[in-house]
Design a protein around this nucleic acid. Sequence first.
DNA 1: TACTGAGATAAGAATGATTCTTAACTAGGA
DNA 2: TCCTAGTTAAGAATCATTCTTATCTCAGTA
Lengths: 154, 154
Amino acid sequence: MQHLTRDEIRQSLTECGLKATQQRIVVLEAVTELHGSHPTAEDVFQRLRPANPTISLGTVYKTLDTFTETGMLRRVVSEGGSKRYDSNTMTHSHIYCSKTKEIVDFEDKELEQLLIRFFSERQVENFEIKGFSIQLTGCKVEPDKKISITKVSK
Amino acid sequence: MQHLTRDEIRQSLTECGLKATQQRIVVLEAVTELHGSHPTAEDVFQRLRPANPTISLGTVYKTLDTFTETGMLRRVVSEGGSKRYDSNTMTHSHIYCSKTKEIVDFEDKELEQLLIRFFSERQVENFEIKGFSIQLTGCKVEPDKKISITKVSK
DNA sequence: TACTGAGATAAGAATGATTCTTAACTAGGA
DNA sequence: TCCTAGTTAAGAATCATTCTTATCTCAGTA
C-alpha cells in the first residue's frame, strides 16, 4: 500500500463502503506515508496538519477507527501509552524496544508458514482466528542504531 | 504463583529488594487472585478495596509498575485501552477477542520450542531479546462460552 | 523496645489520550 | 441542482495515568 494516487485512495474508500471525503483521503495518505513507524493518532494529525490546517484531531481519531473497522488499517498491540496504527495489514510480526518504545516490523515467510502449520494442528474452540503475530520484546543495545533481523547459517 | 501466604509474599518482596509494606502485600495478593484475567490497575484496586478501604488508586498504579520492573509481574501488550498485568511471568501466549476484549492465556511447550529453534537461526541485530510471545487475534463465536485450545490429530 | 532515616503512601491536582456531543457541512445519488 | 444521510469541527467530557507533596511506616540500630 505505497504511494497511491488520490484517485486510487478515493476508489479504495468507496470499495469499503465509505464516503470519499477530503479528510479520509488525507488521513489515509498520511498513514501510508508514515508506513513503518506505527504512528499514533497524534502523529498522523501532526503530519497532515500543515497541508490541512482545518482538520480536527477528533476527526483523525474517528477516521483511524473507521479504517481499522473496515480492515484498511490494523491496530498494533503495544505496551500501554497510546494506540498505534499500521498500514501494513499483511501478516507480520513486531519487535518492541521497551527502552525507546520503538516498534519494528519484520516479515518472515518461513516463520509464517511454520505457524500456519502449527495452528492447523491445533484447534481453538469457540474462536475464529483472524490473524496472528509474534512479538519479540527486549531492549535495543545501541539506541541510535537500527534494529534488523537476519538469517544466520548454522 | 498461587495461594501464597502473606509471609511468603513478604519474603518474595524482600528478595526483590522491596520493603514489604501492607499495600504491596495486598496488591500482589489481589493480582495473583485475579490470575488469568489480566487485570488493569483499576481491576486490582476494586478487588482489594473492600478489605483495604484506605489504599489509594495511585498506590496501586505505582506498585504494579514497581512489580513489573522487578519482574514479579509482566505487562501484557494489548490493543489500546488500559494497561493490563499478568502474574504469569513464564513464556506464554495470548488469544485476544476483539469483541469482548478478553485475553486468554495459552501455554504450549511445543510452540515455545519451535520458536526457540527458529530464532536461534535468526539474528536480531542491535537488540537483546528478553522474551517473545504470540498473539492470536479474532473473535469469539459465542460470547458466553469459553475459549480453549486443543491439539487435534490429523 | 524506642529511635531514626530512607523509602512508601494518600490525596488530589495535573497531564495525556480518547470519546462524546452537537450544530454545521458535504459527497454523491435522485 | 437539490436533498439527505453521513461526516466533520470544535470543544466539552471522560477515562487512564502520572506527578506532587506532606505525612507515614518499615526495618535496621542503639
